[in-house]
Design a protein around this nucleic acid. Sequence first.
DNA 1: ATAGGGTTAG
Length: 728
Amino acid sequence: MATLQLLQTQPTRTHPDHPILSLLDDHNRPPDRTHIKKIHARMLRLGLLSDPYSASRLIAALSLSPSRDLHYAHQLFDQIPQPNLFTWNALIRAFASSSTPLRSLLVFLRLLSEAPLGPDKFTFPFVIKAAADLPASRFGRAVHAMVLKSALRADVFIGNSLIYFYASCGDLGLSRRVFDGIPVRDVVSWNSMIAASTQAGRPEEALELFRRMEAEDVKPNDVTMTSVVNACAQMGDSDTERWVCSYIERNVIRRSLILNNAMLDMYAKCGNLEEARKLFDAMGERDSFTWTTMLVGYASDGDFRAARRVFEVMPSRDIAAWNAMISAYEQRGQPKETLGLFHECLKEDVIADQVTFVSVLSACSQLGMIDLGRLIHASIHKHGVTLNCHLATSLIDMYAKCGNLEKAVEVFRSVDRRDVFVWSAMMAGLAMHGHGEAAIKLFWEMQEAKVKPNEVTFMNMLCACSHSGLVDKGKMYLNQMLPVYGIAPKVEHYGCMVDILGRAGRLDEALDLIENQMPMPPRASVWGALLGACAVHGNVKLGEKAFEHLVALEPGNDGAYVLMSNLYAKSDYWDGVAKLRKRMREMGMKKEKGCSSIEVDGVVYDFLVGDISHPSYRKIYLKLNEMTSRLRSSGYVPNRSQLLQNVEDDDAKEQALYLHSEKLAIAFGLISTDSRTPIRVMKNLRVCDDCHSFAKVVSSVYEREVFLRDRYRFHRFRGGECSCMDFW
DNA sequence: ATAGGGTTAG
């Protein structure tokens, strides 16, 4: 009886173990591709391939060796008369850890229909791993169902891979159910569950599991501690950090490279760069994770030079290192440097990935470089990079912020999986272009698609209401946030509501919201919104109040002084203007210079007020003169009320309205682009009334579409009208 | 003859 069972489970041996097979797994000399092919040829001549055992050994070597050739392995597999389960498993395993895990699933399906014996305890972990990495959630659930119906339902290896599978499908609850259902859990079961909780952003649960693990006397190892350290990093308090470090010391946990990297990351995340540096110096072995973690640590600590130094001296730079450096530039608001580094990265033949493109697209939208953005979109398309939600969000954002709303909508419609960020980016784009109602419609469409709104969504919704003057809708959504959607409004949401009310002239309501209804103290931005509204509606008294609150919170806020000064000027209160100027002078404060930029033939040109640094500035000023007289005869009257926008005496001369930076950029656009190309100008500050009406007339007199993005929103000028309907 | 868990970048 025992012999019979052995015969059934052991592979059939028709030949004795041929010496050539030992060449396949010589660990001192792993066979390279040509070597394997030679062995293959010899095996063919020896007739060894008709022996399932020998053929399987060859397939395994082909699929698993460092220089594996899965295509070759697959072809060979198809030629074997009777692949045994070991052979099937080797192939399923190889594909599971390849770049095409889908093939693993396909081979598994073939196994089900073709193999005389079903999958075994080795097959399941491989195929479940493939399903997890795709992730193929329905497929994985079906495999799980097969496991439950089989005799393998209590297998701890399979259980552990199912924990991993459900975690990567984002269903922590099901991971937990599998975990709870494993009769005899081992350390890997605990590690998988703790890691799943950590990765789902639930550090408290991870630490709770760790305590239970200890209570049940399962000894944690370095892998356990890696996840626990990661959880502590997420908790972000220094007590937890000290506790985990001393635990690792006391229990003599092996300090693997990965554990050290995780600890490095924890120190860096807690802003403890000194400790991070100490550990870094003490580490005997370092890899690209180590260096990149240090880089990111310095960058997020604000020590940009140290970050750059790490980048310069690290022994090799993979795409993750480049991405870290590129995104550091991007987040510092240095889009030109971001793009410069991106070009260097391409020159070094490092293959850009989705993360790279996310940063680069963001730099494009900061600069308004729609042509480069388009180019990147095209190359993403060409390289068959799949649009994940991050990338789709960046593309939508880039097109919207560069003025091509149609293209943004096109991208939005073309992606099949949309997360809350994709939806929110589209709503923000519509809002920015003044399509408030459309943004609100999208909000409902999003909920029909069963995607839950988050804080960002509501910020964009309120912005939409603000840009379109939808006061009651804005109030309604703000009031619904907590009771209906379970999201507590933050100070930014209240700031936006103040803006909505203020623009509509309901200044008292806005003040009441700030003083009596907000559950938190107002921040500078909230008073700023109120001050802005007072400036629009000429309410000096309330404006002064908002201004004093604002500068108390942010003494260096030059925008506050400009707004207040405009408000005084508008109300003919010149003493006020003078007093403000004096105050600014005493503080040594300078107004942020207005700067407009325009992209022509892939180059971004910046213009400051009265700028004469451009090589062809004479031509630009001539054009501007010509334009001004042509526009005057078409009814353009310079609006001098904002002449005093700038409170700096010294450059008052340059402050003549017609030298405003956006006018220079538009003039340059007219002389340097094709007559059918829209002119796209980006401005760092808000556009002033005069430039706004200037652009309107340009769009009709010169029959050119003009896009003007300011700090706040988008203006699209066509045929003498602006998309904002003069409401901004 | 074959297995599972962990670290960086948005």
